[in-house]
Write a protein that binds this DNA or RNA. Structure first.
Lengths: 122, 122
DNA sequence: CTGTATCCCTGGCGATACTG
DNA sequence: CAGTATCGCCAGGGATACAG
């Protein structure tokens, strides 16, 4: 069971939204699917150097549970699974827009570094 | 040192913003200071049944470090310390607005419960 | 290719006691 | 009143191996 003790009583909408976005890679998944529309498991994985299969699967499953992500399995060999945003996930991304802009500002102000998706630190 | 391994390279603005808001009570602190303008330590504490002094202090310090919260110490006996939002904190709250609305929608849709701030579960 | 299963470790958080 | 110091739990997350 995923993140069971959460989905608990919330103090406000921020809490309820944060619960759904909390997870080391969820912001990035949302962004990838927003930009690319549809992505396969391995494509997402390549976009996030450092993520383990376990965590990627787990995050994807939780986001599916939360109705943010649509998972389409094609009965082929080799298997092909495609992920995309639901309408619900798209509205979340829109709500995240101003926050992302604020964060971008913060990075500029504080001179914080951007993780380049292509360099896995080694 | 607070949350040291973070403030790390971010994949995007969402990441950078989430880093600053992550923490069990930070959303609530932001909200309290938005509504009340100025709050003392004990007032915040009373508003959040269940929080420990340690966590409240820690969160407040991190938010001060991050430039979200202003801490004003009055040299009196008994001591009086007042917390308020910085301009920076206020713009974060504004950026959080749409997300809060989305979360509120989610709670309504899913029939999720609201934690009443007055009932500490027992 | 797309996942499960297992083990382990870190750090976020809670509880309690003590201090200026 | 407004904190600090210490201890310990446990869930999130990483590494690795295995499976359909």
């Amino acid at each position: 069971m995923a993140r069971a003790p959460r989905h608990g009583p919330y103090t406000c909408g921020i809490d309820a939204a944060l619960d759904v976005v909390s997870g080391k890679w969820k912001g990035f998944i949302l962004w990838e699917l927003e930009v690319h529309g549809v992505r396969r498991f391995a494509e997402l994985r390549r976009g996030m150097p450092g993520v383990s299969e376990k965590m990627l699967t787990q995050h994807l499953r939780e986001m599916e549970e939360d109705g943010l992500v649509h998972r389409e399995v094609h009965a082929e060999v080799p298997p092909r699974v495609e992920y995309s945003l639901t309408e619900h996930g798209r509205t979340l991304n829109q709500a995240l827009g101003p926050l992302g802009a604020w964060g971008g500002e913060r990075m500029r102000r504080e001179g914080l570094e951007v993780a380049t998706a292509e360099i896995p630190q080694g």
